[in-house]
Design a protein around this nucleic acid. Structure first.
Lengths: 235, 235
DNA sequence: AATCGTCGGCGCGCTAGCGTACACAACGCG
DNA sequence: CGCGTTGTGTACGCTAGCGCGCCGACGATT
């Protein structure tokens, strides 16, 4: 590799680590493909691995019961899945579903635990990431409570676009309804509104972001705040 | 002190620590009184202290804007305030308001930072507490979205009662409305319903829990799940 | 070219909760 | 004792979103 960028840089939490830490991590991790729809964690089950997405992304979904479920967090290249392990807990808090196929670095729980005491930079970065996720969860409580479907849909599309790194997303209204915890036809109405305003275009399971700045405008402020928080704490 | 219980045991996170860790903590902390309505943290401001409530309790409130605010977490004898410090971040994520007057152990940010590396039991316990709070935040996103006011009110009263250690709570409908992020008269209706069912009694700013088991029944399952999670992870 | 499953548009009646506003009762203070 | 303040009950019209269900259109398969 002649580039100054190492393969590990593909995940932001692993980028620019001290060489010793990076090598130690890469020596004990493996690269795995994740397929769309794959379940990585079931709530309360034991977490055996942590995942650091490269070009995949994962939805974390809170389940109240069969009919009441909704996405509360998303992990892509900018983050990780398996926070519990950093906190010394071996159970998964929520359902983790691969929402964007791709690959990820995967590391065994025991290896990660062994690694962290000797990787102060990584360890610190992961703890700060946990802070970001917690803060975003806190504001999501308010966002899901106060903001309407159209704003939340816009926010969700932006977050997904960031992680998918593409203007075109493979998503049905049905799926979006599950993510936002609303009715399918509620999504249809919101999507029509966004399309009419020229912000997105869609057709049978494919949504294209046409006007990203406009979409940011249409989204609730929570999107911008989430970005600002991430940059403030992790960059 | 002839009792086998030490003063530190008044906060569950500090109870039954190894003597060395307990002494180190108690040597650098102070006991402070907290008065009702006091603001301990403002969002994004620097956190100078962590608090371990003894018989006080503190609401953590997410603020979207002047009109849209709602409580997302509560810290009493069973927990702490100032999680950011454990994660190596010095800013506060939310507004922290004293909701039940009483006292708390208070420790300076720098002292806590210095203490933790030599206090493995406490450190581990605090990390596991963070996991509990995160999981509760995640399910709160869903709870606030799907459950109705009456169920959420019942849950909130139970959580408050646990921390206040009293059947009688000093609360106005106005205040409850702010906590749950709803209209004042929405609380009045829910309170009437609960009183009619003989679960609570209230009068001008004082609410009394009459039938706790019944109230648990009336609350959404989130209350029981929160308790179960706490016990599973921290006991 | 016919078929069939998936996806999206739409309608209908309904409910929870909103914003606003007013009235009354209890309490605290001078 | 009278007064203002605070807390609670209630009413009215309104909106977002629900549950349900139907239909048409698209696209893949054969």
């Amino acid at each position: 590799m002649t580039s100054i960028f190492h393969a590990a840089d593909a995940n932001h939490l692993l980028a620019n680590l001290p060489v010793a830490e990076r090598d130690a991590f890469m020596a004990t991790c493996e690269t795995v493909p994740l397929t769309f729809g794959e379940t990585l964690f079931q709530p309360t089950e034991t977490v055996t691995h942590a995942y650091f997405p490269i070009d995949s992304f994962i939805s974390q979904i809170a389940i109240l019961n069969a009919d009441n479920r909704l996405e509360v967090a998303m992990a892509g290249r900018e983050g990780m899945l398996g926070i519990s392990l950093i906190l010394g807990v071996e159970e998964a808090p929520m359902l983790a579903l691969v929402q964007g196929a791709g690959s990820a670095f995967r590391i065994k729980a025991a290896n990660l635990r062994r690694l962290l005491p000797d990787s102060p930079v990584l360890h610190q970065r992961l703890k700060r990431y946990i802070y970001v996720v917690m803060s975003q969860l806190a504001s999501s409580v308010a966002c899901n409570h106060f903001h309407r479907i159209e704003e939340r849909l816009a926010r969700w599309l932006l977050m997904t676009q960031d992680r998918a790194n593409s203007d075109s997303l493979q998503l049905t209204h049905e799926f979006l309804a599950m993510m936002l915890g609303v009715r399918r036809s509620g999504i249809t109405l919101a999507a029509i509104a966004l399309q009419t305003r020229g912000l997105i275009r869609y057709h049978r399971g494919e949504i294209t972001v046409v006007d990203r700045p406009g979409l940011i405008e249409a989204a609730c402020g929570c999107y911008a705040e989430d970005c600002a928080l991430y940059n403030r704490i992790l960059l």
